[in-house]
Amino acid sequence: MPDAPPAQWILPTVILETERLRLRAFVEGDIDDVHAACTDPELQRWVPVPSPGTPYTREAAELWCRETTTLLRTSGDGQQWAMAERENGRLVGCIGLLRTLWPAMNTEIGYWVSPWARGRGLATEAAVAVSRWALDQGFQRVEIKAATENAGSRGVAERAGFTLEGVERSAMPLHAGRADLAVYSLLPADLGR
């Protein structure tokens, strides 16, 4: 078994708040909404959860809420937040830092939005909050990667102030085939523009 990551490579458990969202840990009460969101055909088209070619089950939602998100943080991979509406507390999506490269201080943002909350700019609001928080933690590069055909996800990156750098060809396995990924970045210097 690999050694545990150094303590400085584990992000703190924090709650972030925006005008409309509370970004918090996943809880038992989120399981049904996670399952409903992750079985949505449009989400499944672009986010191959739990893995390419594997159907999403209630058990997968339970594992995500009870264990996986904590393990991702304590392994040093990053941090996952439930996107909950501040007004009523309902889960409206997920956003997180992942594939964190600590020696380089680079990390990537991944997100999905529940079908009942799409089209309201919530992912952009969350991406702004998480990316700025990551830069405040000392990260020197924050990325968002989205399938080139996924206009919604690409729009989030652009509205959140990320710069398109290029395309990684055939970089992501989906449930049906593979996708090219548009690569966006945000650097500390970008915030001064």
Results as ranks from 00 to 15, higher is better:
46 W>S: 12
46 W>F: 14
46 W>G: 07
47 V>D: 12
47 V>S: 10
48 P>C: 06
49 V>S: 12
50 P>L: 07
50 P>S: 05
50 P>C: 06
51 S>Q: 14
52 P>N: 01
52 P>M: 06
52 P>W: 08
52 P>Y: 10
53 G>T: 11
53 G>S: 09
53 G>P: 02
54 T>C: 05
55 P>M: 10
55 P>G: 09
56 Y>W: 08
57 T>L: 12
59 E>I: 07
59 E>A: 15
59 E>W: 07
59 E>D: 14
59 E>L: 13
60 A>E: 09
60 A>R: 07
61 A>T: 03
61 A>E: 06
62 E>Q: 14
62 E>W: 09
62 E>F: 00
63 L>P: 00
64 W>F: 15
64 W>T: 00
65 C>K: 07
66 R>G: 00
66 R>K: 12
67 E>C: 01
68 T>I: 15
70 T>Y: 05
73 R>Y: 01
73 R>S: 00
73 R>H: 02
75 S>L: 09
75 S>A: 15
76 G>A: 02
76 G>P: 01
77 D>K: 08
77 D>H: 06
77 D>L: 10
77 D>S: 14
77 D>W: 03
78 G>S: 04
78 G>C: 06
79 Q>T: 04
79 Q>P: 01
80 Q>W: 14
80 Q>E: 04
81 W>C: 02
81 W>K: 01
82 A>I: 12
82 A>N: 12
82 A>C: 10
83 M>W: 03
83 M>E: 04
84 A>C: 15
85 E>Y: 02
85 E>K: 11
86 R>G: 07
87 E>R: 15
88 N>P: 02
88 N>W: 13
88 N>K: 05
89 G>N: 13
89 G>T: 06
89 G>H: 14
90 R>L: 13
90 R>E: 14
91 L>V: 13
91 L>F: 13
92 V>G: 07
93 G>T: 04
93 G>E: 06
93 G>R: 04
94 C>F: 03
95 I>S: 11
96 G>W: 08
97 L>T: 09
98 L>W: 11
98 L>E: 11
99 R>H: 14
99 R>V: 09
100 T>I: 13
100 T>N: 06
100 T>P: 09
101 L>S: 13
101 L>G: 01
103 P>D: 03
103 P>R: 12
105 M>Q: 15
105 M>K: 13
105 M>T: 01
106 N>L: 08
107 T>Q: 08
107 T>F: 10
107 T>V: 12
108 E>Y: 10
108 E>M: 14
108 E>F: 12
108 E>A: 14
109 I>E: 03
109 I>H: 01
110 G>C: 06
111 Y>P: 06
111 Y>V: 11
113 V>Y: 00
114 S>Y: 05
114 S>D: 11
115 P>S: 10
116 W>I: 03
117 A>H: 10
118 R>H: 04
119 G>N: 03
119 G>S: 05
119 G>Y: 08
120 R>T: 00
122 L>A: 02
122 L>W: 05
123 A>R: 13
125 E>K: 09
125 E>N: 01
125 E>Y: 12
126 A>W: 11
126 A>P: 07
126 A>L: 08
127 A>Q: 03
127 A>R: 04
127 A>N: 05
128 V>M: 09
128 V>I: 15
129 A>Y: 08
129 A>Q: 09
130 V>E: 07
130 V>M: 10
131 S>K: 10
131 S>G: 11
131 S>I: 11
133 W>N: 03
134 A>K: 10
134 A>P: 02
